[in-house]
Design a protein around this nucleic acid. Structure first.
Lengths: 206, 206
DNA sequence: CGTCGCATTGATATCGCTCAAATCCGGTGG
DNA sequence: CCACCGGATTTGAGCGATATCAATGCGACG
């Protein structure tokens, strides 16, 4: 997975490639921010140590995503970066990347657009995960992801979808059969469709 | 709550103020995007209608936030904007706002920084809401929000904090007393502190 | 003083998690 | 082509955590 094509051409000369093994760290809390990172392969997590010794995952980036965009605007890291799986990382010196991006309005706009689109996605996830029951989360996901055709084609396994929804796989399987039996949705393999004229189960009466 | 001071001065002349009552709509799905909005007061939600007639909240913006940043880059709205509470909205013509922001590198940078910071916050929320039990969500929140002093000062009521955590207020009250009794945290009113050297309850063994 | 909203505690129901077992499915090698 | 294997999917049973309903205390405010 390569960096987006809207990056200023001048950046290519400054790109640095790194590979890190699963569990290894790319940087640690309080390190000065030296580079801006793109995850070309694998999955990278930002992990914060808590006063009581526990660890909390702050965010993760998967292949094709920038990692910790906010670090581009901060002097020091406030968490560790650790590989969830073996990673291939492409990095640029932070200041070089920032200057290059904001010197070229088209690139600045594309970068902002990417941030805005990611932000919208995360907002939807938050709203979805706030819902307390499995059915509502499923219906919310379908509402967000349904193509104009009316169908949703799952890119991954049901297992991974369950993780995305904050559910255990068994819970998802059961909820899907229940919704199908109730006539709320139709399913064929990994294709799903909400059936119209059903009673709203996810509505907020207020 | 006023728009950020890093907005290009030229935008002030184009600002339009609107007030809408609770439940009223600012725009609707498939409307052409004409303006970019800032919530000066109140709370505004983006709501998507689902094929089955139910509604799903996609995102919300509160006083002091821009609303639906991604709309700045899209031709049409894909959801309705509805006031959760009475709102005062400041808006600029989309194209005017976009040109002004990206014509001035400092403003483009500030805008991107804001998006990146918001994105990081939402990522943390997602990770937190993915956790299955109340204690872990509370500890995760404290890990994210603890000031250098070691204390967290809650800005709002416990009720609102419960909503932020995706819990019912009663659950939060109970979990807090439990954690306090266990010596994991100290609490005084709305000031909270994690106590060190406690057994990790939120750790991911893996 | 009365009211209202927040905080707290109790009792109960419900839903999702967990452990377990069976089945399905795609890929592999004989 | 078929037997076999590992992972995903499905279904079952039971438990535990959270939501829900209810009652009370408490503090701010008019």
């Amino acid at each position: 997975m390569n960096p987006p094509d809207w990056l200023p051409a001048t950046l290519a000369a400054h790109a640095l490639e790194t590979r890190i093994a699963k569990g290894e760290s790319l940087f640690r809390t309080s390190d000065a921010v030296a580079r801006f990172h793109f995850v070309a392969a694998g999955e990278l997590a930002a992990i914060r140590a808590m006063p009581n010794g526990a660890e909390a995952v702050m965010l993760t980036a998967r292949a094709g995503e920038f990692f910790a965009e906010a670090s581009l605007f901060l002097p020091r890291y406030t968490c560790d970066a650790r590989a969830v799986s073996a990673c291939r990382i492409i990095a640029w010196p932070s200041e070089t990347f920032r200057s290059a991006i904001f010197a070229e309005p088209a690139a600045a706009l594309a970068f902002s657009r990417m941030l805005a689109v990611n932000l919208r996605r995360q907002c939807s996830r938050v709203e979805r995960l706030r819902m307390k029951n499995a059915d509502d989360r499923i219906l919310h996901y379908l509402a967000c992801e349904t193509a104009p055709s009316g169908w949703v084609e799952l890119a991954s396994s049901l297992q991974e979808w369950a993780a995305e929804l904050g559910l255990e796989p068994e819970t998802l399987y059961r909820a899907l059969s229940r919704l199908e039996a109730a006539g709320t949705l139709e399913r064929d393999r990994r294709r799903l469709r909400l059936v119209g004229s059903q009673v709203a189960s996810c509505a907020r009466p207020e």
